[in-house]
Amino acid sequence: MSELKAGSNLEKVLRAGHFAFTGECGPPQGANVEHLIEKGNHLKGVVDAVNVTDNQTAVVRMSSWAASLILLEHGIEPNFQMVCRDRNRLAIQSDILGAYSMGLRNMLCLSGDHQSFGNHPESKNVYDIDSMQLIHTVKTMRDEGKFLNGSDVDVAPKFFIGAASNPFAEPFDFRVYRLAKKIDAGADFVQTQCIYNMDKFREFMKRAVDMGLHEKCYILAGVTPMKSVGMALYMSKQVPGMDVPESLIKRLRGAGKGKVAEEGIKFALEQIEEFKEMEGVAGVHLMAIEWEHKVPEIAERAGVLPRPVV
């Protein structure tokens, strides 16, 4: 086995061939450390790494690196997220160094939602570099020990590099090529957008496998259990790039009063079962939005516990 790129728990789990299971935790809209720890504790030991979002949906929250460190101190491996919306290349590179120096080992590189979606729509956006370039920057700093300007990094930051992929955005045919491009740029693992349209995802994965992408990069399928019909409708209508089939909304509606959430979890469990067998899928990324306390139960029922110790 070749040397590990960063040596994070997530990398080791994937490298050992286990079916990975990652979770997500949004930092508080304030300095509420206690609440962050509480949310993190629901995920402790239940997932291999926890994504810590970076001003998700362009809403101001505690900085992702700080929240990541707090989780790390409490024995939870973070997957530090960084978006290109809020930082120029100087801040990006210095935060990469800072985050690594403080012990973070996974980093997910994203463009970030446009600020018009968030709570500061008046703000300027940066997008000095894009997510593809961010992936390449982290890889170049890690593998070549060079900054973007070509000068030397004094002790290179070794991150296990993550990227996102949305198989449901358009143009559909281009999506798999964009994934390939991210892998070429340096992505070690990929977490997909929440999947609801299984037919489309199967087709996407078939194409990815045909191109051999699953052999170059670990692909984790994104799952978000639906809590309510309202959430399904919101996801389908308001969230860009989300594909919620009518059949799923119908199924949730049919579950009857008080049973919709359970039906949502059942659908998620069915998905996870299928992903375990699906060629090219290396794990599941469970984004239980403001539902962290449900994750242990979902993990248990999905049969992914206990998590491997590597």
Binding site: H114, Q115, S116, P121, E122, S123, K124, N125
Partner: peptide
């Protein structure tokens, strides 16, 4: 106060 950049290119 901070300017709204929604009317600029930043707003899309």
């Amino acid at each position: 106060p901070p300017k709204s950049w929604t009317t600029a290119r930043d707003g899309g």
